[in-house]
């Protein structure tokens, strides 16, 4: 099967119902996508598929055939949200951070606090109480 991963074509021979999460981490070697619960509750494994946030632990790899997948590695190391998460200490333990940043990207420009809160409701953070994450997203926008 083929799909686009971080702007590069990849072709893989994997079981169709393998989780996208495992394929990314094990077959593609991209470990920035994290597993927190394996049931779509925590959002640590959030990646973008055709621009939309999804939990990679719930997506059968066969269902991204032909799609564009973006992981945290696809943002490089100088994305405004990455810088803002640094500046505002939006990352503490950091395990939720890649998923949090990818979901935040889908909020669009200058999101209101209400929109941020609704948009991030599928990304659990146990360290920050979310406030520093809001500050980071506001700073980046």
């Amino acid at each position: 099967m083929r799909f686009t991963l971080n702007a590069r074509e990849v072709e893989l021979n994997v079981a169709p119902l393998a989780r996208l999460l495992d394929v990314l981490r094990e077959d593609c070697g991209l470990t920035g996508t994290k597993e927190g619960c394996g049931e779509g509750e925590c959002g640590a494994c959030t990646v973008l598929v055709d621009g939309e946030a999804v939990c990679a632990c719930l997506v059968p790899v066969a269902q991204v055939e032909g799609a564009e997948v973006v992981t945290i590695e696809g943002l490089g190391d100088d994305h405004p949200l990455q810088r803002a998460f640094m500046d505002e200490v939006g990352a503490q333990c950091g395990i939720c951070t890649p998923g949090m940043i990818l979901t935040a990207i889908t909020l669009g420009p200058r999101p209101s606090l209400a929109k941020i809160r609704r948009g991030l409701a599928g990304n659990l953070c146990r360290c920050t109480g979310y406030e520093a994450i809001y500050r980071a997203i506001h700073r980046a926008s």
Partner: peptide, 9 residues
């Protein structure tokens, strides 16, 4: 229903 990740799927 769920968070946006679930709503998208």
């Amino acid at each position: 229903v769920g968070g946006v990740q679930i709503q998208n799927r």
